[in-house]
Simulated assay, not measured.
Amino acid sequence: MKYWMVGWLLIITGATAAPRSQGLPGDFDFYVLSLSWSPTFCLTHPNNEQCSGKGYGFVLHGLWPQYARGGWPASCAPDVRLTNEEMRKGATLFPTRALLKHEWAKHGTCSGLVPLDYLEKTDTALGAVVIPPQLQPFNTPPSLAASEIEALFRDSNPRMGNHGMAVICKGKVLSEVRVCLTKDLAFAGCPRSVKSQCRSGDIRIPAQR
């Protein structure tokens, strides 16, 4: 089973502006690749199946179509049910089947792609972003400033510009990072609607479980 975990990588979630209700499939401007810091999620969801001692670091939350003006399309029609083949493919990318189904219904349906192509695109997006060695599972410092986390990602991804990602916190704790990508999955500058949401100074990085 090919779980993308920070040396592998799995991912996890949405965006920063108000969502648009529905939308036309394929009618969007860029993608956000959202990588969730699993230990933070597991602090408040200890019984979730991704929190059963698997030692995840960053995991796939989702690949989200976005509007440059802010917001994003959501739950576009039709919501095609995933086949067994598509579920097997998604299981190599997402930490849980429930998250896979949710992300396809909310975000994947707006990509303009059939499910298998959307999952292949998500796989390619994951492979395009290198997780810094300092943020690999079991190798993370207990705290860093959001600006330091951004710098580590830029160092590991030389094509990423100075405004190519955002760091998201829950209170004083790292929650996820969001990387802006073109529709062809090249690094892109994030618009003002995708920005870091962390306090100044160091933020806590919970240890893997």
Rank of each mutant, 00 (worst) to 15 (best):
182 T>F: 09
33 L>A: 13
19 P>R: 03
150 E>L: 04
102 H>K: 07
12 I>W: 10
177 V>Y: 04
98 A>P: 01
90 G>F: 01
4 W>S: 10
127 G>F: 08
156 S>N: 05
182 T>V: 13
140 T>H: 07
148 E>V: 09
205 I>L: 13
206 P>Y: 05
200 S>E: 10
31 Y>P: 02
89 K>C: 05
15 A>L: 15
10 L>E: 02
57 G>V: 11
76 C>I: 12
128 A>G: 05
12 I>K: 12
166 A>T: 10
148 E>Q: 15
154 R>N: 07
19 P>H: 03
107 H>L: 10
43 L>M: 15
41 F>T: 00
159 R>T: 06
194 V>M: 14
193 S>I: 00
99 L>H: 05
177 V>K: 01
80 V>F: 03
79 D>P: 01
131 I>S: 12
107 H>T: 00
200 S>R: 12
91 A>S: 13
12 I>P: 04
181 L>H: 08
115 P>C: 06
143 S>W: 03
33 L>Y: 11
160 M>H: 11
197 Q>H: 05
27 D>M: 07
17 A>M: 07
56 Y>R: 11
72 W>Q: 10
117 D>G: 06
93 L>G: 06
23 G>Q: 07
77 A>T: 11
42 C>V: 09
131 I>Y: 05
161 G>W: 09
159 R>N: 14
81 R>I: 15
185 L>S: 01
95 P>G: 01
179 V>Y: 06
183 K>N: 02
136 Q>P: 00
137 P>Y: 11
198 C>A: 10
37 W>I: 15
149 I>P: 00
27 D>Q: 14
1 M>E: 11
111 S>R: 05
23 G>S: 08
121 K>W: 01
172 K>W: 07
158 P>I: 13
65 P>V: 13
198 C>H: 04
147 S>R: 14
102 H>E: 13
23 G>L: 02
103 E>Q: 03
92 T>G: 09
109 T>S: 14
38 S>E: 14
91 A>W: 01
113 L>Q: 11
127 G>H: 11
3 Y>R: 13
25 P>H: 01
43 L>D: 07
60 L>H: 02
69 R>H: 12
1 M>K: 06
126 L>T: 05
8 W>K: 10
42 C>I: 11
40 T>W: 02
130 V>S: 14
2 K>Y: 05
193 S>D: 13
125 A>D: 05
114 V>E: 14
113 L>P: 02
120 E>G: 06
130 V>E: 13
90 G>D: 09
166 A>C: 08
159 R>H: 12
